[in-house]
Nucleic acid binder design. Structure first.
Lengths: 148, 148
DNA sequence: TTTCATGTAATAATATTTGTTACATGAAAC
DNA sequence: GTTTCATGTAACAAATATTATTACATGAAA
């Protein structure tokens, strides 16, 4: 299946924004992620609502971080995207089938736990930390930037 | 995205097999799950390799459980299907981008942990237990069976 | 008022999962 | 031995999900 990769894209672009320390247009952001500006605007709409980024329209507009990297956890970004994250597909409903109900209940329980763990785990990592893991000495200067 | 629901389907059908206490054709199994016989054969091929079920060809053939329900955990079934179960989509590769590498590494770590928890959790539940959770007094007799 | 950038709807392209058809293979029944 | 029934697969079609693209309205600066 084609998996939702918005979280990965969002984090990738957010760190590029941090690296630049300046606002970026969705076109520039799209270039970072190898995607389309409209996809960026769609993806980041959720982040804007969550206050993780801010956007301004018009000439000279663009996107910027809404608060310090240290105050943004990976879980914050995940939540802002409201993607399913973990989901076991459920079989087609056979209404009234007690067996199916028991199966789905059991699977749901386990999934809820795993999902909680994942969120908890993502909450322990801030963008600042993550940014710190990148060896910035090896990153080309902004002007050279394409997909780097 | 359309999520892989093979685990749900497999468990559902396995319990119906247990309830019947007799071998079933893939056509009968498909009726239980509201799907197609070929889909069942495909799905259960993995379970057969894992010894969870056995199949016999020819006249009077069909599928039967390979070992007692008590010796089959939900994790066994999950493994036999080798579906991804938990996966965060990854952005398109930007080869050599250190930021993307850091992002994906961080996400992978968290996913591996969540996946391990889910498997561990599924390993604690056997099909026998799960079957016990079904109120069998409410299940119509085999002859009445369609999607029940 | 021109230019630039976001916001969003509508639509197309792409990918994944599921469903279907077709037929080969194997085993029992006759 | 031939007919019947069921699995085993390949090949292909349909359904669904995600991503990409186009088009245009809106807002703000030059």
């Amino acid at each position: 299946m084609k998996r939702d990769s918005r979280l990965s894209v969002a984090l990738h672009v957010l760190l590029h924004m941090a690296q630049r320390q300046a606002s970026m247009t969705s076109e520039e952001m799209a270039a970072c992620a190898g995607t389309n500006p409209v996809v960026i605007r769609r993806t980041f709409a959720g982040l804007r609502e969550a206050g993780i980024v801010a956007s301004t329209k018009g000439h000279g507009g663009g996107w910027s971080l809404g608060r310090p990297l240290s105050q943004i956890s990976l879980a914050d970004v995940q939540d802002a995207l409201d993607e399913p994250v973990i989901a076991l597909g459920r079989a087609e409903d056979s209404p009234g089938c007690l067996i199916e109900q028991a199966v789905n209940a059991a699977l749901d329980e386990a999934v809820v736990e795993a999902r909680a763990l994942l969120t908890k785990r993502l909450a322990t990592v801030s963008l600042a930390e993550l940014f710190g893991r990148v060896d910035t000495t090896k990153i080309p200067l902004p002007k050279d930037h394409h997909h780097v």
